[in-house]
Write a protein that binds this DNA or RNA. Structure first.
Lengths: 202, 202
DNA sequence: TCCGGCCCCGGC
DNA sequence: GCCGGGGCCGGA
């Protein structure tokens, strides 16, 4: 059943509520738009509406497509670089993780990251069997490891979160990659709580 | 100035349609919910409603979780590669940035990321630095851009869109050892900060 | 038409 | 209260 909408004449649009108050936005609760809005009133909080002062266009949350694509782009570039480096160095397969090994034989520039997913997603991708552009001299025992994640990155709606990403460190600060060794005893791990992934269908 | 809704009683809400038809969803237009809905009728298209059956979860936009996970997966692979490279080069620990060092002694396959924001926002908003390339997940929050009063979610807004992509390097032979210079484009700025820990440059 | 965003439902 | 995620406004 369709539901009603405008009770008034077509001239009257949506009446555009200026906006939900700060609290309601944060809590994503319905804001009735009055001064002390219903929620704030009950909660006994200030109830301040945005737009008045301060709050340089907040836009609070909006990474989306562009951001994701940018990230993906960077990832691909980095992956290419790494691939190149490793191969040019003839790192023995023995020394690397099968995951990495697998990575080397993978094509990097062939992901269609359409940010909007079509009604029907593609089937699971088979293991990569791309012709390596320059194989390593030795092919060690290769164990079936990574299921080869596809590159399809779904759009990102709110990529808001703390994330332990790679961060700062200018290229000039990269270790000289000389020829020595170092051993750092403790393994400093980090970690963040991962909340349960709940999936819901509306 | 709320919506033009409930002028009389709070009984009548905005009255959302049960579900917008496929076309309206795609175009994000208002769907009146009838069989050939208004839009489809005018456009002369089928107007099919997303039946509860069939139509694998639409999600049309983005399960950011999936996106993040995919990214994280790839980042981990990259980290593995980096670890492999650096170790095979036997770089002297002394010469390295502690961050990198830390990076090497970490277990690559055991990081968890939280898609939800942390309970407490970081304080210092330092200026943007240089293009990142190789760093270790620092566990702490770092993606901070706008202080914003009520905004607690950082989001990847910082790299929202405009920004020069890292140059695309093709499979070219690189110097056998060490990548002292990767010819990064002069620009590329964004990225966040670091709590300014012991960042050392040799 | 597209789509960034906004309001806000409703499960947890 | 939180927050995933849906409907859909309104500007381009």
């Amino acid at each position: 059943m369709a539901l009603d909408e405008q009770t008034t004449e077509p001239r009257r649009k949506r009446a555009k509520i200026v906006s939900a108050c700060g609290e309601c936005r944060r809590k994503k609760t319905k804001c009735n738009g009055e001064q002390p809005c219903r929620n704030c009133e009950k909660s006994g909080v200030p109830c301040v509406y945005p737009s008045s002062s301060s709050s340089n266009d907040d836009k609070r949350n909006a990474p989306s497509k562009a951001a994701l694509e940018a990230i993906e782009e960077r990832l691909k570039t980095i992956e290419d670089m790494l691939r190149t480096i490793i191969k040019s160095q003839n790192v023995l397969a023995v020394e690397m993780d099968p995951v990495v090994n697998n990575f080397l034989n993978r094509d990097s520039k062939s992901s269609s990251s359409s940010v909007s997913s079509p009604p029907l997603p593609p089937p699971p991708p088979p293991p990569p069997s791309v012709p390596p552009l320059l194989t390593t001299p030795q092919q060690q025992s290769d164990t079936t490891t990574s299921p080869s994640l596809q590159n399809r990155l779904p759009s990102i709606r709110s990529l808001s979160s703390s994330y332990p990403p790679e961060q700062k460190l200018e290229h000039r600060d990269l270790p000289p990659l000389g020829f020595q060794n170092y051993g750092y005893p403790p393994s400093c791990k980090y970690q963040s709580e991962n909340k349960d992934m709940k999936k819901r269908k509306r």
